[in-house]
Design a binder for these strands. Structure first.
Length: 424
DNA sequence: GGCAGTCTAAACAATA
DNA sequence: GTATTGTTTAGACTGC
């Protein structure tokens, strides 16, 4: 993903320092994503530092807290609940505690978040229980996490809608039947594009040189805490694959069949293949034919990445401990229904189990339900098998990555420290 | 300078 | 009629 920050003159006017702290503050807020009360939010000590860029890649804390994996938890919706905050310069040990989400930085109210709108939307959607949000809720989430927008011109909402419409990462799902167009649609993240979005999240605050923001975003922190901070892309993909496994295979299949999504899929035919088959495809889905014309917003390469991730993952053997990374919902319900139980949208109540727990099932899918029961069962079973296989495989991959990262981080840490000493 | 990615603004249509 | 939502287009900016 390309540059995001510092687009407009007023943005440029925002001092990097302010952005830095604002970004950190946003991380506070990001850390609250699992929607816990403020009192329950952990505190973290933050030390603003100009050399934090180096520090951000410093994994001293990693070997000092060798059991970080235990801190890598997943929220109820399967999203990691790791505190994104850590003491950048302090004792190198990630700080976990309920206070790290308090003391919000006032600067965040005036500093633009170091995230593109697509990422903001992505985060908002991902942290919703249903992995689906109406535009209004997306507004609310962004407003809640980034007070900047409370005082920003209302154009940002237009930008949000613009992103939702144009960005293929986002899929519109009708809340209920008959509402083909108009208000109240739900927006989801296309599972195919999650890796790309996550990579964008990973890259943006850290590697975006123009941003001047040193704030580690929450996913990056998650990756750090799961010992993949300094990983190469393949390692990130492994972690990504793990998180992606939260998204049910079956759900993906169902989503792939949503007629409401066909518009965008027709726009980019990358997802037209059935999910179960797609997982086994060795060649990446075709990206947008005309990337320039389709306003893909940086999603061109990720489908391939995801396929690559899954392809590599599925060729591995299983390691049990990796299950620690998988949310319990994945363990319990391998039907992958996690995240689609609506707790806020009454419309979903109308669409009960026939939706396969997926909440907002498309009409076409429902139409095929009656005679599709046996097939559905069969498909469900195969989904479960694939799901299990993927979980195991991803576990192996993460396990390997973890070992490699440990070694790598120790080396890099030693290097960093020696360089520090030299400078002194 | 071209390109890609992103943001912003505006206009318009559809819907609640 | 108004507000909201969704789509589309155009222009601008920034970094590579």
């Amino acid at each position: 993903m390309g540059p995001v920050i510092g687009m407009t003159p007023d943005k440029r006017a925002e001092t990097p320092g302010a952005e830095k702290f604002a970004g950190l503050n946003q991380i506070y807020k990001m850390g609250s994503l699992p929607e816990v009360g403020d009192a329950a939010r952990p505190k973290a000590t933050l030390v603003g530092t100009d050399s934090a860029d180096d520090e951000l890649t410093n994994l001293n804390w990693l070997h000092e807290n060798s059991n970080l994996l235990t801190n890598f938890r997943l929220g109820s919706e399967g999203f990691p609940m790791v505190s994104p905050l850590y003491d950048i310069e302090g004792d190198d040990v990630p700080v976990f505690g309920p206070s790290c989400y308090q003391n919000p930085e006032k600067k965040s109210a005036t500093s633009k978040p170091p995230y593109s709108f697509s990422l903001l939307i992505y985060m908002a959607i991902e942290h919703s229980p249903n992995k689906c949000l109406p535009v209004k809720e997306i507004y609310s989430w962004i407003l809640d996490r980034f007070p900047y927008f409370a005082t920003a011109p209302t154009g940002w909402k237009n930008s949000v809608r613009h992103n939702l419409s144009l960005n293929k990462c986002f899929q519109k799902v009708e809340r209920s039947h008959g509402k083909v167009n108009g208000k109240g649609s739900l927006w989801c993240v296309d599972p195919e594009y999650k890796p790309n979005l996550m990579q964008a999240l990973k890259k943006q605050p850290f590697s975006s040189p123009q941003s001047g923001s040193l704030s580690p975003h929450y996913l990056s922190s998650v990756l750090k805490q799961s010992q993949v901070q300094t990983l190469k892309e393949s390692d990130i993909d492994a972690a990504t694959a793990m998180i992606l496994l939260n998204t049910s295979i079956e759900q993906e299949i169902l989503e792939c069949e949503k007629p409401s999504l066909q518009k965008k899929r027709g726009y980019s035919s990358a997802f037209s293949a059935p999910g179960a088959v797609r997982l086994q495809e060795s060649h990446p889905p075709a990206a947008s034919i005309d990337p320039k014309a389709d306003h893909n917003y940086s999603a061109n390469s990720m489908a391939a990445q995801r396929c690559a991730s899954r392809a590599s993952v599925s060729s591995l053997s299983s390691v049990d401990e990796v299950y620690e990374f998988i949310p319990k919902s994945s363990h319990v319900g391998s039907d992958g229904s996690e995240g689609f139980h609506s707790d806020e949208d009454t419309d979903a109540e109308d669409e009960d189990d026939r939706l396969g727990d997926s909440g907002y099932a498309p009409q076409a899918h429902e139409d095929s339900a009656p005679e599709g029961q046996p097939g559905k069962k069969k498909r469900k079973q195969s989904c479960q098998e694939i799901d299990e296989e993927l979980k195991e495989a991803a576990g192996s991959l993460l396990h390997l990555a973890g070992i490699r990262t440990c070694l790598g981080s120790l080396i890099s840490t030693a290097k960093a420290q020696s360089q520090k000493h030299r400078k002194k």
